Structures are given as structure tokens and as C-alpha cells.
Amino acid sequence: MPSDDPGPGSRVLIVISDMQVRTTVADYLRECGSTVVEARDAEEALKLKRPTDYDAAFMELDIPGPMDGFSLAQAIRRERPGTPVVLTLDADHAERDAVKLSNVVRGLDRSFNQLALAQRLRRVRAARR
């Protein structure tokens, strides 16, 4: 198990449109001891489980469909205030994204690696406690 994992026993929702990336991230978080639920878009994520079933969520900002990652994050936070949400950010739109996300969720550069994701999830979960 990686030494800086997001927390054994954590329940993480992953919403990433690219199946290969989603699977890679999910497999890594499972190796860390997390229970992972995967979705390709917001609609699928909302159908899977209630937001109260997750300790944290990780998703793309620009997921396909009528609801983007920011809107999904807001929906999750309405159901369960304080739920840590980490969104991938596009470097080309970092300023726009930062304003949109201010004090709501945490961002992670789209070129993230697995360790960076695990560290960010651990930090946002620890800050919630």
C-alpha cells in the first residue's frame, strides 16, 4: 500500500469520462484501501448512490453532459455539506476555474499523478475533520 494514501476505508466517488484514466485512478485508490465508485459523467454519478455515501469525490471539471464537474460538486455539497471534492483543472482556464471554485472545492492540475491525487484527497479529508 502506498505510504501517502487517501486513507484506508475511505469511500471515494470518481467521475472521469475517459475509461482508461478512470480505471487507472480507481485501481490505485483501491490499492490504497479505498472503496471506489466510478462514473463517466454527472448523470451516472447521481444515479449510482447518494452523496452521503462518500467521504470524498474526485472528478473532471469538464465532464460530458449537461452538468459539469462544478455543478456536480455543488449538488454533492448540497446533499452533504463539507464533503471534500477535488476537481481537475485545465491550465488554460486556471484563473476562471479558481474563481468558480473558490472556497467550494479543491482543484488539481489536469496533469496530476497518482501520488498527487492521493495526497490531495488525504488533505481535504483531514481538513474536514
Rank of each mutant, 00 (worst) to 15 (best):
R129P: 15
A42F: 14
L117T: 00
V21F: 06
L72V: 11
D53F: 15
L101C: 14
A45W: 05
A94Y: 08
D4W: 13
A127R: 07
R50H: 09
P81Y: 03
V37D: 06
R129T: 06
G65R: 00
D53W: 12
I76E: 03
L108C: 01
S102E: 15
R128A: 11
V36R: 08
A73L: 03
G65M: 00
E60S: 02
A98R: 13
D68E: 07
S3L: 11
M1R: 04
K47L: 09
T83Y: 01
G82P: 12
L101S: 14
T35E: 04
G107D: 02
R80P: 10
R120S: 05
A91H: 07
M1T: 15
L108F: 00
R125L: 08
A127C: 07
M19I: 14
V85Y: 05
S3F: 09
Q74M: 00
V37M: 07
C32F: 08
K47S: 15
R106F: 08
L101F: 15
D109R: 11
A98P: 12
I16V: 10
P51I: 09
V86E: 00
R80F: 11
R11H: 04
G65Q: 12
R40E: 00
K47P: 11
A116L: 13
R78F: 14
V37T: 02
A73I: 04
P66S: 11
L89G: 06
Q119I: 13
A116W: 05
A45E: 07
R106N: 07
D5H: 06
F112Y: 02
I16K: 10
S10D: 11
A39M: 06
L13S: 05
V105E: 03
L115R: 05
T83H: 08
T88H: 04
R120W: 09
G65D: 06
A127Y: 13
P66I: 14
R40C: 05
D55N: 10
Q74T: 10
L115E: 05
I63T: 01
